[in-house]
């Protein structure tokens, strides 16, 4: 496809566990991400959900090479040229950083407390020498204004700001180099409900205006549904399902997605939750289960799930799933809400 911005092919991130013996080498690996492939279209928001330990953060960070991927290709199309990020040297990568950015979860730890807001926002420009002198200031003011920061406060330090404002500073830093691709790693999870809405609106406005492409990683399903065009679900280092948002939420094809959807607490006392019960606990990513990784907890598991690895296939237009029985199971999606008016 011509309008694909990023294509991830068979991405793996394995973390070695050092043996405790004196000269013991590496004996085991935590397979945080274990063979993940997907595309991100230009200008879209792809949501990535999954529970803790699913590897969603690692996917986001290894695409940016904040974490070194072990295997796989990360093809980034920019200006009609395709680059495999996984092959770039450190120096080449530094030159490429202007095209991609990360918005962090924690608005406190992600800003250097010893730098002024102006310097924090300017960092990508200065570090990559993208602008000089007065132009830096001009662009900082522009980015700050876009994020609705008070321009009088640029000379202040982060400790002067609240969580929501700090997150705006982080966003201004992310967009100042006019990147094509931004990873939002739980970027609104640490914020209060009322602030979270502002930041979500801001992200959507900025996307509309500048055509940013987002990979939006979060554990809050409603937030992801709100902002994403398509959503991918991860379980134990692999994708289990990827589909346009409404398809995924209302007609899931994978039992794990069904379980997730059933567990969303609806803001409606008349709709009682009926969560699907998953057996046991999420298995260790050091020794993931054989066959389908979800078979140890799946309510629909059959013998073949224990041995055969399900294929990642497109069962409907744009609806990918990896389950042997994706076509035969009838699964329940999120409750189609009876609209509640909140005045």
């Amino acid at each position: 496809m011509s309008d694909t911005l990023l294509e991830i092919k068979d991405l793996k991130v394995h973390f070695p566990i050092r043996s405790k013996k004196l000269f013991g080498g590496v004996t085991q690996y935590v397979k945080a991400v274990d063979g993940v492939s997907f595309r991100i279209e230009k200008g879209e928001t792809l949501g990535l959900v999954g529970e803790s330990g699913s590897g969603k953060t690692t996917v986001g960070r290894s695409i940016l090479r904040a974490i070194e991927p072990t295997e796989g290709k990360i093809v980034f199309n920019v200006d009609g040229e395709a680059f495999d990020l996984s092959k770039l040297t450190d120096k080449e990568l530094r030159g490429f950083r202007k095209h991609m950015q990360l918005i962090f979860q924690d608005p406190y730890s992600s800003l250097n407390p010893r730098m002024t807001v102006r310097d924090i926002i300017a960092e990508p420009l200065v570090a990559q020498k993208l602008a000089k002198g007065g132009e830096v200031d001009e662009r900082v003011r522009e980015a700050a204004a876009l994020c609705k920061l008070n321009l009088e406060f640029l000379r202040r330090f982060p400790h002067a700001f609240s969580g929501g404002q700090r997150q705006r500073i982080g966003i201004a830093r992310a967009l100042i180099s006019r990147p094509q691709f931004i990873v939002c790693d739980e970027s609104v999870s640490a914020l209060d409900v009322s602030i979270q809405a502002e930041i979500l609106n801001l992200l959507m406005d900025l996307q509309k205006e500048f055509g940013f492409t987002f990979l939006f990683i979060a554990h809050d399903l409603s937030v992801v549904a709100h902002i994403s065009k398509r959503v991918a679900v991860m379980y134990l280092g692999q994708l289990v399902e990827l589909a346009p948002t409404k398809d995924l939420f209302y007609t899931p094809k994978h039992p794990y997605t069904e379980a997730l959807m059933s567990a969303i607490p609806e803001v409606n006392p008349d709709q009682e939750m009926n969560p699907v019960h998953l057996a046991g606990e999420i298995p260790s990513p050091i020794n993931p289960p054989s066959g389908c990784r979800f078979h140890t907890r799946c309510p629909y598991t059959k013998d073949m799930c224990k041995t055969d690895i399900p294929k990642w296939k497109e069962i409907e237009d744009n609806h990918f799933v990896s389950c042997h029985f994706a076509n035969t199971l009838t699964l329940k999606g999120a409750e189609i809400p009876t609209s509640v008016d909140a005045n």
Binding site: L64, A66, R94, K98, L102, S110, N112, E123, A127, Q128
Partner: peptide
């Protein structure tokens, strides 16, 4: 491992910076 140091790295800052 601080977030802001990672942020600097992702902003394209080299080791000396």
């Amino acid at each position: 491992g601080e977030d802001y140091v990672i942020a600097a790295r992702l902003s394209g800052a080299g080791p000396s910076r």
